[in-house]
């Protein structure tokens, strides 16, 4: 989808954190802190977190610091960001908002204001995109 619909300029895609498990918050903080240095870095960290998903259950500060180094972030800035309680609070507030909106299925999608719950095959997405 990114290679077709996003690349062509027809779709823009954003990410909203769902915190379903205890380690979810730290992973979300890593993405948020990457994005704080550069919005492009958010997506690099986003990709890396999914690639290393199995490591996240036991990840510690050093694990995330290694991720940051791997995608070219400035280490000390990242460390300070990860320790900033305001960052965690912001992510938790986003999670509260989605629960208030009754978005509880993971993943869910908001496409031009309509909520779709559950994973969507690409063909279904294309049909939704084609709707007026």
């Amino acid at each position: 989808m990114v290679e077709n619909d996003v690349a062509s300029g027809r779709v823009r895609i954003g990410y909203w954190y769902i915190l379903d498990f205890p380690p979810s918050l730290t992973a979300a903080q890593a993405a948020e802190c990457a994005g704080a240095q550069d919005p492009q870095a958010f997506w690099r960290m986003h990709r890396l977190l999914y690639e290393r998903q199995s490591q996240l259950w036991s990840a510690d500060a050093d694990t995330y610091q290694g991720f940051a180094q791997e995608i070219g972030l400035e280490g000390e800035t990242f460390r300070r960001c990860m320790a900033d309680p305001a960052v965690a609070a912001r992510i938790q507030e986003l999670d509260r908002q989605r629960r208030d909106a009754d978005i509880r299925v993971r993943p869910s999608f908001d496409i031009n204001g309509r909520i779709y719950r559950g994973a969507l095959p690409y063909n279904t997405l294309r049909q939704i995109f084609a709707q007026p």
Partner: peptide
């Protein structure tokens, strides 16, 4: 088209 993905990294 604006799409928001609600998801968890885990």
């Amino acid at each position: 088209i604006r799409m928001v993905d609600y998801s968890d990294f885990l």
